[in-house]
């Protein structure tokens, strides 16, 4: 039996009829055609499907669309207007080479968005634990950490750290 739900996605309200078993990530990707939210595993491990649900970062592969009824969703597409300007995190990732293949990037950025919303001056250690639910196979995380530190500085209005690669 289909269930009628109302969800606000990136500021736009949608009324949808969905199977109760429909996963939120499939609702976002298949019904709303917002393909920036990715699927990288089937065990709630990788975080590629991370979105903001009422401002909290969650893994949309382990939430039913019906559970989002009445709630507000932000996906990567909703962070900034198309073509920019970027959010501090998007800018941080670009300036610091915080992405390679780009597949984990939307989830990583949405997770970091909540992290910085709670604490815009995190330590490197807090960042590493804070993104521990997001797997990246390309970057080795150094530059993701650097990107988040950069975004934090930008949000605090402080001088931005160098974005040149640091070589020993």
């Amino acid at each position: 039996m289909l269930k009628k739900i109302t969800v606000t996605v990136n500021g736009t309200q949608h009324v949808l009829e969905v199977e109760p078993r429909l996963l939120l990530v499939h609702m976002i990707r298949e019904l709303l055609n917002l393909t920036g939210t990715h699927i990288g595993c089937d065990t709630t491990s990788c975080g590629a499907c991370t979105i903001l649900l009422d401002g909290k970062s969650v893994k949309s592969c382990t939430i039913l669309a019906v559970q989002a009824n009445g709630k507000s969703i932000t996906t990567i597409e909703g962070l900034a207007p198309e073509g920019g300007p970027f959010t501090p995190l998007q800018e941080g990732f670009k300036e610091n080479h915080g992405l390679h293949c780009g597949f984990c990037t939307p989830g990583m950025i949405l997770r970091a968005t909540e992290l910085l919303a709670h604490n815009n001056n995190p330590t490197e250690e807090e960042i590493r634990w804070g993104i521990s639910g997001n797997l990246c196979r390309c970057t080795g995380y150094n530059n993701i950490v650097k990107a988040i530190l950069y975004a934090g500085a930008k949000m605090r209005g402080e001088a931005l750290p160098s974005t040149e690669p640091e070589f020993v």
Binding site: E77, L79, I109
Partner: peptide, 23 residues
């Protein structure tokens, strides 16, 4: 030169085009 990457803009805005995005 440590040129910032040209490909990043689309990935940062959810506009990458991966195979599962094809319909």
């Amino acid at each position: 030169h440590s040129l910032k990457r040209k490909e990043d803009a689309r990935f940062l805005q959810g506009k990458g085009h991966y195979v599962d995005d094809i319909k």
